[in-house]
Amino acid sequence: MPADASFEDTNPSVRPAEIVRVKRGETTILQDAVAAEEPLEIQLVYGAAANRKVKSISITMRTPGNDDELAAGFLMTEGVVRDATHIASIGTPSAAKTAPPNRTDGRQVALPTGLRSQVIRVELSPEVEVSMSTLERNFYTTSSCGVCGKASLTALRTLCPLPQHDNFMIRSDILSTLPQQLQPVQAAFKKTGGLHAASLFTADGLLYSVREDVGRHNAVDKLLGEAFLQDAIPLRNHLLLLSGRASFELLQKAVMGGIPMVAAIGAPSSLAIEVAREFSITLVGFLRPESFNIYSAPHRVLGLSGTPYRC
């Protein structure tokens, strides 16, 4: 980052760091900006009114900010909640910022010395039924821990909502402009160069919302969590733009959010392509001003000519 990088104490996404800048063999001590990364524990409160239970279901390393959206998006994309009315409240329990991680499932999470997780607690309405065995199976199967693609797709077919009809289409010339529209609104990325962005655009190329995070999956959860809490899911009339690559996990979240099209500035993975084809999502990769690749459902991109796309 530039030597004159400025800092905003109120910005939770950015931290100052003293660095040694080396340029043409000369060293200078400078203050730079880096992306903040801290643990967040997501707790779930559920059960009948007379028998409420509290369970820690995840600890994720994320960029602080929009934690309520992150928690809501995480629970929605994992199939725990299907409607915004299922969530009674989201907030930080008392003394959460000083309490160590407290996992009721017996698993231990190793954090760096002196680093304690913050806590966000999601309270479900008493009538919402939660199957913890199914919940834990889904978290395991959809995580990046070496589970085979076949098992992941099978779990997604079981978890995902039924396909929704949509009429989403976008002109290729508008699609090509989206990365340039995203760059100016990546405020924390401008300071640090270390954050992923996820954004929603309309078919007219209008920016609907954007979120940033050190984790690409967290950025998408924050983005979809905002829409979920606004009761805007499914997002049949929006495109999801990713600042990096497109992985299985991100396509899974798009499926759960009812998003008909995903575009990535980077490359898609093989399993992301499988998910897109399985659920008829238009998947675009290597999005540039003059070129891009379509891996699935090209009918949503207008203004194309040449050899028909067969996949």
Rank of each mutant, 00 (worst) to 15 (best):
N102R: 15
G47S: 06
A88R: 15
V45E: 09
C148H: 14
Q164T: 12
A96Y: 09
D83Y: 13
K53T: 07
E127S: 09
P163T: 09
S58H: 08
I120F: 02
P101W: 14
L75A: 04
S89R: 14
L135R: 10
A84N: 11
F168S: 03
N66Y: 11
G114Y: 05
S176N: 10
V81S: 01
T92I: 11
V128G: 01
I59R: 11
N102P: 02
G114E: 02
D173T: 12
P64R: 13
T141Y: 14
S131V: 03
G146M: 05
S176Q: 14
Q118M: 06
D105L: 08
P163D: 07
T77V: 04
L135G: 00
L115P: 00
P101S: 15
S117Y: 06
I59D: 02
G65W: 06
P39W: 10
V119D: 05
A95M: 12
E38S: 08
A110L: 11
G114T: 00
S152P: 03
F74W: 13
T113R: 15
A84H: 15
T63R: 10
I90D: 06
P161M: 11
E41W: 04
S94V: 11
C160S: 14
R103V: 06
I87H: 02
A72C: 00
I90E: 07
G65M: 03
N66D: 10
M132P: 00
I87R: 01
P93W: 15
M76F: 10
Q43E: 11
E69R: 05
A50K: 13
A110N: 14
A72M: 00
T142F: 12
D67R: 03
R171L: 04
A155M: 12
K55A: 04
L162A: 15
V81E: 03
S89P: 00
H165Y: 07
I87F: 01
D166F: 04
S176F: 03
D166G: 03
L124F: 05
R121L: 04
P39T: 13
E38K: 15
R107A: 10
L124K: 08
E69P: 00
A151V: 08
R82F: 04
N66P: 00
R116H: 08
S176E: 08
G65V: 08
R107Q: 14
A88H: 13
V128P: 02
H86T: 09
L75S: 05
P163V: 07
L175T: 03
K53H: 12
G65C: 07
N138G: 00
L162C: 09
N167R: 13
T158K: 14
G149M: 07
V130G: 01
